[in-house]
Write a protein that binds this DNA or RNA. Structure first.
Length: 291
DNA sequence: CCTTAATCCTGGAAGC
DNA sequence: TGCTTCCAGGATTAAG
């Protein structure tokens, strides 16, 4: 579930509680969620004996960097969570689907849970290795990318704008919720070919994307069902969604009042307003399914 | 190039 | 109440 704003909230809450603290032990309860050179005999790959130095984020992925330089990368997938449990009772069993538990000196624990197991944990000997072997496949972060860089990336694409923005190799961090919200905010139809956006439109897209993501971060992210931050707290931005999850309901655009449309794009439910997000300057027949 | 569907999983909600 | 079906924040892969 977690998209950029949710993952950034996890990063911030974990950083506040874990930086400077030393990992005393790790309990890998499901070995197949961890990829890398970590073994029961070599737990230092999972930062045992390391103090947490900083926590980085690129798109939807996190990197916990230890003082030794070793790195643990976590991708939360759809249902993953990273939550700090303060001083659990000795006999207290972790919740179901808790796959990795880090025990910190002093007693607190960090739990990686992921019922659907679309997420995972990857270990690397250095941040350089993480960037070369894993993060090389990601585009620039959605909070950092410049209008010029995004325009260059979009100009090479003939795909629809929604499918293109969901592609993590183009832009890292946007998912189904925030793409729909962004395209509504910009008045852009989700099936507009990415390459048909002009420089002014791309500049507006980037400006509104930053504003949308920053507002969502400040609201604690969107909690639909599972998402919680590193403290176990839910977000509040789902209350401010304009289109996501609102197919068939009235558009909240000024003076619009028409019914929001719901279609499938790139295999994902897509909600938009046909009046506020027209297919301008495009041959409709070539894009929309004929009746 | 492009798009679509299947796939990896679990669990909640809706339908009967 | 119980059973079945569908759907979900992600991402890769194969197939058309």
């Amino acid at each position: 579930m977690p998209e950029l704003p949710e993952v950034e909230n996890v990063r911030r809450t974990l950083a506040g509680r874990l930086i400077g603290r030393t990992v005393a032990a790790v309990d890998v309860r499901r070995a197949d969620v961890v990829e890398g050179e970590a073994t029961p005999a070599a737990p230092e790959a999972l930062l045992v004996g390391d103090a947490v130095e900083r926590i980085e984020r690129l798109g939807k992925q996190l990197a916990i960097v230890g003082g030794s330089g070793r790195v643990v990368c976590v991708h939360l997938g759809m249902t993953g969570s990273l939550v700090v449990r303060a001083m659990p009772q000795p006999a207290e069993a972790p919740p179901p689907h808790t796959h990795v538990v880090w025990r910190f000196a002093g007693g607190d624990e960090l739990h990686f849970r992921d019922p659907r197991r679309f997420g995972g944990v990857w270990t690397f000997p250095s941040e350089a290795a993480l960037r070369e072997r894993r993060w090389h496949a990601l585009g620039e972060d959605a909070l950092v990318i410049t209008p010029a860089a995004l325009a260059a990336a979009l100009s090479r694409k003939r795909q629809g704008i929604k499918a293109t923005l969901l592609d993590q190799a183009v832009l890292a961090g946007m998912g189904n919720i925030y793409v729909d919200e962004l395209l509504f905010a910009c008045g852009i139809h989700p099936l507009r070919p990415a390459g048909s956006l002009g420089p002014v439109e791309v500049r507006t897209l980037v400006t509104r994307m930053r504003r949308l993501l920053n507002r969502a971060i400040e609201a604690g992210g969107s909690t639909l069902r599972d998402y919680v931050d590193g403290n176990g707290d839910a977000g509040g931005f789902q209350l401010r969604h304009k289109v996501y999850g609102r197919g068939g309901q009235p558009c909240r655009g000024r003076g619009c009042g028409c019914e929001l449309a719901s279609i499938a794009v790139a295999g994902r439910t897509t909600v938009y307003c046909a009046a506020c997000q027209p297919l301008t300057g495009v041959d409709r027949e070539s894009i929309l399914p004929s009746p």
